[in-house]
Design a protein around this nucleic acid. Structure first.
Length: 502
RNA sequence: CGGGGCGUAGCGCAGUCUGGUAGCGCGCCAGCUUUGGGAGCUGGAUGUCGCAGGUUCGAAUCCUGCCGCCCCGACCA
C-alpha cells in the first residue's frame, strides 16, 4: 500500500540522489523525455516555472537598460568560423543543416534533397550572427552602448543528457552588448553577473557564489568568464549563470567598429551572458525534499492552493462560494509587486491524494476549507516548507492579513536553509594532502566546496581529473585576499573554489 | 563516444537460466460503501513482451544486429 511509504518520493535523496532527482521531476510533472534523443518535453507545471523565471529576469534586464530582439536559429557555417577559439569550443557539438528539401525515397520514406551551398549550423549560441548584425548597427560612439537580449532555444549536441541540467535543445536567454570602452564592457559583465546573483538569491532563494572562471573553464573566445555557482544537496556545484567579457575578440572578428568622438575608427568591446532552463534543475536540487518539489513563493506559479472540502452538493455550493470569496480576497493582496497567485482545486479527488499532489508539486501554501472552518470563518493551512502533517487552523482574516509576511517567511526560510547547508559543506583547505583527503573516494564527509589558494595553472590538472574535481570560480567577494598555492607553492595567488560539478 | 546496467499494461516490477504464445502491485473504468487527509469491497478494461532478422512445430524466453533509457567516465550551460 502506498500509504506505508514514509515519503512521496522513492528513492530518497540519501538512497539514490540521481534517481531521486528524476522521480521529483516525474512526481511534480515538470518534464519528460521525448521521442527525440536528448530532447525533453517541458510540461505545463515545469514550463510555468520557467515562465516565472523569464518574467522576473526580463524585468531585471529591462531595468538595466536592455531591449529584446530575435535573431535567426540558423547560423551560416562561415560565421562560426570567424573567431578561432569560438570555432574550436563549439565545433564538436553542433547540429548542421545541409539540405532544404525532402523527396520520396525508394522505400516509401523521405530522403534529404536540395543540398545547401553553405551548411547552416543550428545555433549553439549567437555571438557570431548577432555580431554580424551589430557590425551594421554600430557606426558611431552615439550608438553605444548597445544592449540587447534574446530569449531563444539553442542546440548543443551533448553526449550525455539529463532533464533540465543538460539537454540537446534548451531554452535560455542570451544578452549581447557592445560598449565603447573595455572598462565599461567589463563593468557591464559584472553588473549582469550581479543581476543573476540577485535573481538566484532573491527569487530562487538559492545562494550563489559570484566569481571569475579559471582559464580552463572560460567561454571559447572570451577574455574573462564569470559565473554564479550554487551548491546542490549532494554537495556538487552547479553553474547557474555565466557572464562573459569578450574584449575585442568578437568585434575584431566581425568588424564591429565605431567612430569615436575624436573621429577615430575603434573596435568596440562586447559582452554576452546567459541563463537557461538549467535553472529549473538547480531549483529542484536546491530545495526539494523526499516529498517532492519545494518552490520558493516568488517563483511558484501557484503560491496558494485552496482545497474545498464537502460531502454533498449543498455543502459544495456553500464551500465553493466561500472559497471563491477567499480567492478573490487573496488575489487582491499584493506581494512583491504582484497579485497573489491563487488556485482553487475542486478536482474530484480524495482529500489526501489532492493534498499530496500539491505537496509533490511544491505549492508553498495549502488551504483546506470545509464546513467546520467556514463555521469558524477560518482556514486550515499547510506549508510546503514544513512537514505534511504540520497543519493548523488560522482565522481567515488573520491569514489574509498575514499572508504577505508568511510568504516572506517561507521565502527567507528556504534561502537560509540552503545557505546553512552550503556553509556546513564548505571548507578551507590548506594543503594538497588535505585536498586529496577531502575529495577522496572513502571520505565519509560530503565533498562540498573547498576554498583553496591556488594558482590558475595547468600543473595540477591531472590531480583534479583524478579526483573528478573542477575549479568552479575565483570568488569576487574574496578580491584582495591572496596566499600561497597549495598545489604549486606560488605566492600571491587568489582563492579558488573547487568542487565536483554538474 | 568508452565501460556497466536496463527495456514486459499509464507507473513500478515478476516471468528469461531450464522455449509451450503473459502475470502481480499501484493507477484507470463501473457499481456500492465511505469521505478533514495519499479509502474499502465487488466487477472490468488495457500488452504487436524496445525494434528487425534468425533458429524452432512453437520465442518475452535461444542467436545476430540495431534503437532507446539510466549510472560511471571523457566533453559541456
Amino acid at each position: 500500500m502506498a500509504k506505508e511509504a514514509q515519503t512521496a518520493i522513492s528513492p530518497t535523496r540519501a538512497e539514490d540522489y540521481p534517481e531521486w532527482y528524476q522521480q521529483v521531476i516525474r512526481a511534480a510533472d515538470l518534464a519528460e523525455a521525448s521521442p527525440v534523443r536528448g530532447c525533453m518535453v517541458i510540461k505545463p507545471w515545469g514550463y510555468a516555472i520557467w515562465e516565472r523565471m523569464q518574467a522576473v529576469l526580463d524585468e531585471m534586464f529591462k531595468d538595466t537598460g536592455h531591449v529584446n530582439a530575435y535573431f535567426p536559429l540558423f547560423i551560416p557555417k562561415s560565421f562560426l568560423e570567424k573567431e578561432a577559439e569560438h570555432v574550436e569550443g563549439f565545433a564538436k557539438e553542433c547540429a548542421v543543416v545541409t539540405h532544404h528539401r525532402l523527396e520520396a525515397g525508394p522505400d516509401g520514406g523521405l530522403v534529404p534533397a536540395g543540398p545547401l551551398d553553405e551548411p547552416l549550423v543550428v545555433r549553439p549560441t549567437s555571438e557570431t550572427i548577432i555580431g554580424a548584425m551589430f557590425a551594421k548597427w554600430v557606426n558611431s560612439y552615439r550608438d553605444l552602448p548597445l544592449l540587447i537580449n534574446q530569449w531563444a532555444n539553442v542546440v548543443r549536441w551533448e553526449l550525455r543528457t539529463r532533464l533540465f541540467l543538460r539537454t540537446t535543445e534548451f531554452l535560455w536567454q542570451e544578452g549581447h552588448t557592445v560598449h565603447a570602452t573595455g572598462e565599461e564592457a567589463r563593468e557591464h559583465t559584472r553588473r549582469m553577473l550581479g543581476v543573476y546573483a540577485t535573481f538566484a538569491e532573491e527569487t530562487m532563494a538559492m545562494p550563489v557564489v559570484m566569481g571569475e572562471k579559471t582559464a580552463g573553464e572560460r567561454f571559447p573566445g572570451a577574455v574573462s568568464t564569470y559565473s554564479i555557482e550554487a551548491m546542490m544537496q549532494d554537495g556538487k556545484a552547479l553553474q547557474a549563470g555565466t557572464s562573459h567579457f569578450l574584449g575585442q575578440n568578437f568585434s575584431r572578428a566581425q568588424e564591429i567598429r565605431y567612430q569615436s568622438q575624436e573621429g577615430q575608427l575603434e573596435y568596440a568591446w562586447t559582452t554576452s551572458w546567459g541563463v537557461s532552463t538549467r535553472l529549473v534543475g538547480a531549483l529542484i536540487m536546491t530545495h526539494s525534499d523526499d516529498d517532492g518539489l519545494v518552490l520558493p513563493p516568488a517563483l511558484a506559479p501557484q503560491q496558494i492552493v485552496i482545497m474545498p472540502i464537502y460531502r454533498n452538493d449543498e455543502q459544495r455550493a456553500e464551500v465553493l462560494a466561500y472559497c471563491e470569496r477567499l480567492k478573490a480576497e487573496l488575489h487582491d493582496v499584493r506581494w512583491r509587486d504582484d497579485r497573489l497567485r491563487v488556485q482553487i482545486d475542486d478536482r474530484d479527488l480524495r482529500g489526501g491524494e489532492k493534498a499530496w499532489d500539491h505537496i509533490k508539486k511544491g505549492v508553498p501554501v495549502r488551504l483546506e476549507v470545509g464546513p467546520r472552518d467556514i463555521a469558524n470563518d477560518s482556514v486550515f493551512m499547510g506549508r510546503r516548507d514544513l512537514g505534511p502533517k504540520e497543519k493548523k487552523g488560522v482565522a481567515r482574516a488573520e491569514f489574509v492579513a498575514g499572508v504577505g509576511a508568511l510568504l516572506d517567511e517561507i521565502q527567507a526560510g528556504l534561502y537560509q536553509r540552503a545557505l546553512a547547508f552550503r556553509e556546513a559543506n564548505t571548507t578551507q583547505l590548506e594543503s594538497r594532502a588535505a585536498f586529496e583527503a577531502y575529495f577522496a573516494e572513502g571520505n565519509t564527509e560530503m565533498a562540498g566546496f573547498a576554498w583553496c589558494y591556488a594558482a590558475d595553472d595547468p600543473a595540477y590538472e591531472d590531480l583534479l581529473k583524478e579526483l573528478k574535481v573542477t575549479a568552479r570560480n575565483i570568488p569576487l567577494a574574496d578580491n584582495a585576499a591572496t596566499g600561497t598555492c597549495i598545489f604549486t607553492g606560488k605566492t600571491g595567488v587568489p582563492r579558488t573554489i573547487f568542487a565536483r560539478a554538474y
